[in-house]
Design a protein around this nucleic acid. Structure first.
Lengths: 190, 190, 190, 190
DNA sequence: AATGAATGAGAATTCATTCAT
DNA sequence: CATGAATGAATTCTCATTCAT
């Protein structure tokens, strides 16, 4: 693809994310996305097969950006607890500063439009975390449980916290974030 | 006049839940719900103002059922840890045996169609839990953090686990459930 | 019919007139009328066959009120010009002080829902005017033209004036009204 | 892309006019118009924003046609009385030979769907008449009254006459028309 | 007489997508 | 590649009316 095209995909993605957060998945039509992106609805079909395809590719795109930022400069050599806390902090930071992308992810994750394939591909982008879990378990730093459980206790409460904040249901508070990280650690540590 | 049929609301709710789980919120139309419920689409509008209203009332209905079952025979006098574990167990049990209702809740919670009002009303149904949190904090059994944080660590990982199971992404395992309860406790305990 | 019923018909008529002026003929449904009248939609069908029937009866009702007021104390013995001017003045006064009824009439007169029968019956209520026209023609006070033409020049410009005023397209002005009456007279006089 | 078909708008307008005259404004749905025009209902929405928009544009279109025909070859230099009579004759002729358009205008003029803006724009198309009124007043040929009053006496009785004729409530009669023109003149002349 | 419940028919409008240019 | 035009299918919701009580 040429540069020009990449810009167009970018515009489509941005427009889609904004509209979905404003009006929900079902309230966002292709023509509205096209209008916001400044092109014709039919142009979208040059780049994507259909709405589902577009949404799935957008999902993976966002997940990729997220993983890139979260694992940027990921240092494998520090202590497991440090790696855990550091990564979680970076994750929270990412979803706080990229709330549009994050909220889109949350909406789309619960939709039947998200293909199993995309979901798996998205999960694989967080592979370093699963490595950390395995390493931690082998060193008896983490509880001897399925890594998915560790994953849930690492991310889900934090995700809920940010969702509540972004939904105006609680205040943002640095202290709370520290506590969340502490609690997550308490949950997973052996 | 004909007698208002309470069963009708029940049928509408059941049809809606099933369809939403099968085809997603946006893939579920009022006429499809009506057809499944065995009545005319316009009849739904006798009982509800519009789709949004119907969905919000369905949400509250499900939340109410959930709270009734979770807090049935809720014993205030046992130890805080027992109450915590017992309630969480009952909660997991409810969402496992009422997967349709549970999955609907998860979908709808992320939709902009869910009114703030309904969300709050739904939360209030779980008041006993917040009482437990306050009591536990005063006795220094729980960490001295906002009760919402305790709530997140109590429920969100479990919710994610059941979602993964119901989505076919992991096996159900009694042992895992015990571990989740243990991890939740580790997260919240002082 | 009993008193009680008469009140109900009155309520229905009032509600209908108000709603039609606010939202137009097509924007006014039977259930909205019923709600505004404080009764059930099905009750309207106790008194009228259907919407058309109700509207036609309302039309005649308004026309009857109008004729009663316009011809109240109608004095046959004064000069023809005085009778003409006096009646026109009273007519203008009626439509100015009963703008709701008047505007309903104007809306409904152009609708295909108005039956020929009702229209004729309504016209007959203005019989004294046609008598005046005949008398005036026989005395060579009016032009020797079809009475309907006299009728048009007597009423239509005035009606348009009041419509423009009520529609906010001109100011009400007593002087204008005098001039309209003068012009009408110039048009019909021999 | 396919070429935009100007005929399509024409077809839509024609279908709308016919149906509105047959079944009234409220009895005419977009899908019926589309069917009669030989296209899909959604195609109408390619050309117009909504029903209201379409109707207002149709209104202006008809008004424009009317003004074009009425003022075709309009000669400013003849006597004021001749110009008055000539124009009125042409107007009556237009509404008699374009009864569909005329009746649509009458129905729509009384509808709350007609925007103030369209109404004004429509009136402006008859500017030459208002010039004539001003000129006539300055030469003391017309009464010294608001031009709107002159306008009412010039057109409204004639309009009513044609409506009665088209509604089958009177016969068409060239003599009557001459008389109407005479009466209009008597009404407005100084 | 009065009415809440019920509904089939139909309303306006939007949607995802295709197609010819 | 890009897109305006076009549309069948679907959507939410309203309506006039009927009916059992």
């Amino acid at each position: 693809m040429r540069l020009k095209d990449e810009n167009k995909i970018e515009s489509i993605f941005n427009a889609a994310i904004q509209l979905i957060n404003e009006h929900g998945l079902s309230g966002t039509s292709m023509s509205k996305i096209a209008k916001k992106a400044g092109l014709s609805a039919s142009t979208i079909y040059v780049y994507f097969e259909n709405k589902e395809d577009m949404l799935n590719k957008l999902y993976l795109n966002v997940k990729k950006n997220m993983s890139q930022e979260v694992f940027y400069n990921y240092d494998d050599s520090i202590s497991i607890q440090s790696a855990f806390e550091h990564t979680l902090k970076k994750f929270i930071n990412f979803i706080l500063t990229n709330k549009e992308e994050f909220l889109f992810l949350e909406q789309f994750s619960n939709s039947p439009l998200l293909h199993m394939l995309s979901r798996n591909e998205g999960t694989e982008l967080f592979e370093p975390i699963f490595s950390l879990f395995e390493k931690g378990k082998s060193q008896n730093v983490f509880k001897q449980v399925d890594s998915n459980l560790l994953h849930m206790f690492m991310f889900n409460p934090a995700i809920q916290y940010v969702k509540d904040y972004l939904g105006g249901r609680c205040e943002l508070n640095q202290d709370d974030i520290e506590k969340i990280i502490q609690m997550s650690w308490d949950a997973v540590k052996a």
